[in-house]
Amino acid sequence: MSQLKVILQFSGGAELLFDKIKKREVELPVLEKYLPQINKSEWSIRELLVWMKDNLLKERPELFLQGDSVRPGILVLINDSDWELYGELDYKIQNGDAIMFISTLHGG
Rank of each mutant, 00 (worst) to 15 (best):
F18P: 04
N95Q: 12
P72T: 01
G12I: 06
D19W: 11
E25K: 11
D82Y: 06
Q94D: 14
S44A: 10
M100C: 02
E59P: 07
M1V: 08
F101G: 09
K40M: 12
Q9F: 01
L49K: 15
K33F: 14
I78R: 02
I7Y: 00
G87R: 10
R24P: 04
E47F: 11
G107I: 00
Y86F: 14
W83A: 09
W83G: 08
I78E: 01
I74Y: 05
D80K: 14
L16A: 11
S2Q: 06
W51H: 12
R60P: 15
F64L: 09
G13P: 08
L63N: 06
N79I: 13
R46H: 15
L56Q: 08
F101Y: 13
P29E: 01
P36Q: 03
Y91R: 10
L35Y: 05
K22F: 04
S11M: 07
G13A: 07
R24A: 08
L17F: 14
R60C: 13
P61G: 11
T104A: 08
G107F: 02
E59H: 12
E59C: 12
S44K: 15
Q9V: 06
F64T: 02
I78H: 04
T104K: 05
P61L: 04
T104G: 05
V50P: 02
L75I: 07
I93Y: 06
E88N: 05
E62L: 01
E88V: 03
N55M: 10
L8E: 03
Q9A: 13
E32H: 06
G96T: 10
S69P: 00
I78Y: 09
L77D: 09
S103T: 07
I99Q: 10
E15L: 01
I45S: 05
S41L: 12
L48S: 15
V30Y: 00
I99W: 12
L89Y: 14
I99C: 08
